[in-house]
Each structure stands twice: as C-alpha cells, then as structure tokens.
Design a protein around this nucleic acid. Structure first.
Lengths: 188, 188
DNA sequence: GGTGTCATCTTGTCAATGGCAAGATAGGAT
DNA sequence: ATCCTATCTTGCCATTGACAAGATGACACC
C-alpha cells in the first residue's frame, strides 16, 4: 500500500518504468539494469521479471508508452509547423522514451501493444500533413510530404539529443526546430 | 602505430573492429561482447583490453573510423544533392559505424581521434552547402541551410535503419533519399 | 469467520560478462 | 646473447540476466 514496507509494493510496474526513464535519461539505455531498477524500487532482484518477463519486455512497455505519449503530443497541434515543433519537443522532454522507441533491437517491435500505439502516432503525424495548403508544388504527393517532414524533425531531434549540433544553434530546441521546418514548407 | 607484421595474431586490433562491425550489424551495439569478439578472433578473453582498454575504448575507435569514412564518402560528392544521397548511402552501407557514431553514451565522444575525424566530416558536409546557387530565399543563411540539410538526411537515414518507414517508400534508399532532399532544395 | 486460489514478491542458483592483476611469450633493439 | 617492450594468456571477482521453487497476502466464495 502507500509507503509501507509490505510484501506487495502497490504499483511496482509503474515504479519500475519510472525508474527506467530516470536511468536512461542519465546514462542511456545501455546502462539499464533490472537489478538496479529493483533496488531503486525497494524490491527483490527478481521482482521485475514477473511484470515484464525480461529486459526486452520492460523496454517494450516503455516503447508502447512512448508512442502513446507521442500521439497525444501531436494531437494537440494546430498545423504542420506546430506538429513538427511538438515532435521535437516530445523527443527532448521524453528523451528516454524517444531513445528506446527507435531502437528496435532493444525491444520486441512486433508486440501488439507497440503496433497499436505506433499506428496512433503515425495517424497523428499524417493528420498534420493533410492540413497543408493546396497550391504548393508537392501538393500532389502527401505521402512524400509526410516522409520529408518526418525525416527533418526526426533528424533534428536525434542530432539534438546526441549533442551533435554546434553551439550556434542555441539552447531552445523549439525555436531552432521551427526555423528548420520553415525551410521545408516556406509558404505555410 | 599499427605494425602489420606477424604478431601472435597478425592484426588483432583490426580483426576485433571488423568482428564488432559484424556483430553490430546483426544484433545492434547492445549485443556487443568483448569476450565474444575475442572468441571470433581466436584469442583469449582479455586480449581486447590491451588494444582498446575497455568496451568504450573499442567503440571510440569505431566511431572515429566511422567519421573518417563519412568524410571520405562526402568528399566525392559533386553538389548538395549528391552529398545528401552519399550521407544516406554511408549510413546504410556502414550501418554499424553510423549507429555508434551518434550514440555518445556508448563511447568517449571527447577523445581526440574522434574530434579530429568529426571535424573532417563536418567540413565535408558544409562544403556541399557552399555549392548551392545564390538566388534562393535562404541564401543569406548558409549555417541554417546546413542544419536543415543535415537534419533531413540524418533523419531519413535513422528512420530507414530503424525499419520505421512504411513499405511504400521502397527498397532503394538512394532514390528515396533523393526525393526527400529535393523537397528541401527544389531549385537545385 | 474459514478456506482456497492466484497474482505478487522472495530466495537461491547458474552461466556469461567486464574489468583487473600477474604471468608468459615473441620479436626486435642494443 | 641479453634485455626490452608490446602482445597475449591465465586466473580471479563483482555484477548481471534469467530461471526455478518457495513464501506471502489480497480477494472471492462459502
């Protein structure tokens, strides 16, 4: 129950996922250890296995949660520019989720829960492209627009998180992302 | 530096890096094991430590090699479109190097050898942007052009490698990348 | 209240890994 | 011929992931 040292934790699954996010944000997915998560949650070293099976199971749950959060973040965007900025903002604010989501070797990408959440996020992304004006030269190819938009925001977010960008870019990812996206869709 | 005469092994350092590339291409950087690499090279489990210190040392060498290969690949490009296609092509053909290069939590990103090679690659990338025509609306901001170009090709390459793109994109990364890049610089 | 059932969590164990220390070996330099 | 140094080996330990078997408590049912 609440704060007690009882045999049962209360919400161990949630606590383990939260601890995993913290560890990944600090040291990356490679530093993740089920035993360390168990220690942080105050349970025995084998407790996580019951909820997630193995390490890949825990990361599968984290990835699914990430795609759901991404779909939610994209859902509140007004236009494509907003949508792109929201994508980058999500990557920066939910860095741990984002880093796992696009690393299929870390989890079971074919799991049902992941596939469902991924589709939700994909739909939200394409909805932004559908809102583009019609007079543009590439208006005849919405999938192409979507691919280009996804590529540029995903690339910017990845480079930002990797610390690969020069200092000149500044320290505001939203503003910098907006400038980059505007180059792809100047008219909007 | 690397005398290629007959040591106990011949050229263990090179053999270990090659084996690492193979393992990473098959199963990702997380599946990398120094002992496994030693077994593949036919040496004892502690032999790799002498050449690279530890796991991070080996990946540092791999990252530096990767940035050098990238600089070389970009150097042969005629214009910015070629340069972008070469970037994606490099990521696909040298998947293992690429996956390590932009994961600073796996290696020592501040190592001198890495910094030098990274600068070479960065210069090659900016050289492509300098070749853009002058009449464009964004011609006054070459760094912005470079950031947008880098973002879109890096994002496309990352999504391609992650297997995140829909089948509709096809199986030719160079052709698909060209279409995407053309949207960012339509006039070229 | 008593009982059974089942998800939850614990203890115990094993093979594999990374990293360190100390020793063995070879190929050249003197 | 002897030394020297880089290269590689053997031995060891703490940590980890995964599995097996047992302990505990929440909850339904009577």
């Amino acid at each position: 129950m609440t704060g007690t040292r009882g045999y049962h934790h209360g919400d161990l699954r949630r606590a383990l996922l939260a601890a995993a996010v913290q560890v990944i944000e600090e040291s990356g997915p490679g530093a993740l250890s089920l035993r360390d998560l168990a220690r942080r949650a105050g349970v025995s070293h084998a407790a996580p296995a019951h909820h997630f099976g193995d390490k890949a199971g825990l990361l599968t749950a984290l990835a699914a949660e990430g795609f759901d959060l991404l779909a939610e973040a994209l859902g509140g965007a007004a236009d494509l520019l907003d949508s792109g900025v929201a994508y980058v903002d999500f990557a920066v604010r939910h860095r741990a989720h984002f880093e796992v989501m696009f690393r299929p070797d870390l989890y079971r990408a074919d799991a049902e829960e992941v596939a469902v959440a991924r589709r939700r996020a994909g739909d939200a992304l394409h909805a932004g492209v559908a809102g583009l004006p019609q007079g543009r030269p590439t208006a005849a190819d919405p999938p192409g627009d979507a691919l280009a938009a996804w590529s540029i925001v995903h690339g910017f977010a990845t480079l930002w998180l990797a610390g690969a960008l020069p200092e000149r870019v500044g320290d505001d990812p939203r503003a910098a992302a907006r400038d980059v996206i505007r180059r792809l869709f100047p008219k909007e």
